[in-house]
Design a protein around this nucleic acid. Structure first.
Lengths: 230, 230
DNA sequence: ATGAAAGCGCTAACAA
DNA sequence: TTGTTAGCGCTTTCAT
């Protein structure tokens, strides 16, 4: 069944498409008499009209779509974040496009391209190691983009993250209160700034308290197996 | 930064938009000389052209979008399904729109409307109690839609589901092998056909084997608390 | 209070 | 081999 368009309504109602457009979009201005308004609304109802947002997007250069890129949507941490984002997006009339990067910069890039082509109005992304240049380019193209759980140094990337440095200190304090006398820091061997913050937070405390400590850095990937081995 | 369009490329290259369109879409036909093709590709690269899929969708009446409705994307079961769907979709050049219904038919309806307006090419939905009419309407409008984990009686709704009746029997067999001599069936008090199948599968076995049994049906919602109470 | 028309970026039929 | 053009469904300016 071909979908009804405002043109169909206009033809049936014997008015112009402009008029139909006005009533569909409930412009409150003085335009449109009660009688035409109702006629149009009735017809719309009857022929089961629903607006074509694609056409609208093209005309308006606004898609009401936002892209979400996470490392893996099947991961509990991210699917919960996705859900919260979805809730807020819905409230504002946005729909979310979703994609998983698997922490792979190529996939990440592909997703940004795909979303960008779908003309999303913005992206929420959880960047991955090696995606800095991709992000910078997006930013340079004036693409609204905010980062999740990650930030870039010397780049104005709006980000919602943890205060990793601070939290590391809190963990240290907790451990101290429980009378541990030697600590081992286990973390990724990485340059990602938000992860280094944890390390730095830990190191600062160690120095302050002059405590025995060790640091174990494992390669990105499966922590569990690496730590056992090491 | 305004995005480049094929018109920009055409202007710079001194060719028509049709020509640009042809090379962008790599039509292999005899059209287009190597030299123009390369010129166009170079310019596209240089001015950072990326196709506007919204425009393309409008023209083609195909959005390369598919909608996915699950009860809750933050639920492990569904986020895993979502991930698989995403993988397959990507392979085929589709992007997925996601929405959570919270098992609420109103939200479910809203999502189908939203997706439909976004001109998705089809929907994968996990229907909820009370959504039968919505589904039927979608089907009547010739909307490609397939159901997840659920089916409708007397309606041709493609569905990927468990064989609940059969599986119930297998569970029963397993229990028998382990020498249980009384069984309790705990399930929802519902009319949802796929859930009733489990019940029927169980009942058939009970009858066949003449075993002592009880049935506890709880209202949809939080099973755990209900069963404890009952 | 309403309509005509341009144009968003793209594809494709038809001409040249 | 390439160009012209109509049109997808919609919004909005400018007339009327």
């Amino acid at each position: 069944m071909k979908r009804a368009s405002i043109k169909d309504i206009a033809r049936i109602a014997g008015v112009s498409v402009a008029t139909v457009s006005y009533v569909i979009n409930k412009k409150e201005g003085s335009r449109i008499s009660e009688v035409t308004r109702n006629k149009i609304l009735d017809i719309a109802e009857e022929i089961n009209y629903t607006p074509n947002k694609i056409a609208r997007s093209l005309k308006m250069s606004k898609s009401k779509l936002i892209g979400l890129i996470v490392p893996d949507i099947s991961n509990d941490f991210y699917s919960n974040i996705a859900r919260c984002i979805e809730n807020e997006a819905m409230k504002l009339g946005y729909t979310i496009l979703i994609g998983s990067s698997d922490e792979n910069p190529d996939k990440f890039k592909k997703l940004t391209e795909l979303f960008s082509q779908q003309q999303v109005d913005g992206m929420l992304v959880s960047p991955v190691a090696g995606s800095d240049d991709i992000i910078k380019k997006l930013l340079k193209d004036e693409y609204p983009i905010v980062s999740i759980d990650y930030y870039l140094e010397n780049v104005e990337l709006p980000a919602v993250t943890l205060n990793n440095f601070e939290i590391s200190g809190q963990v240290f304090n907790y451990l101290m209160e429980h009378k541990f006398d030697e600590l081992i820091y286990v973390g990724y061997n990485t340059h990602l700034p938000h992860l280094l913050d944890r390390q730095r937070g830990f190191e600062r405390k160690i120095k302050e308290h002059g405590i025995a400590s060790k640091k174990v850095l494992v390669e990105m990937g499966n922590v569990t197996s690496k730590v056992h081995a090491g």
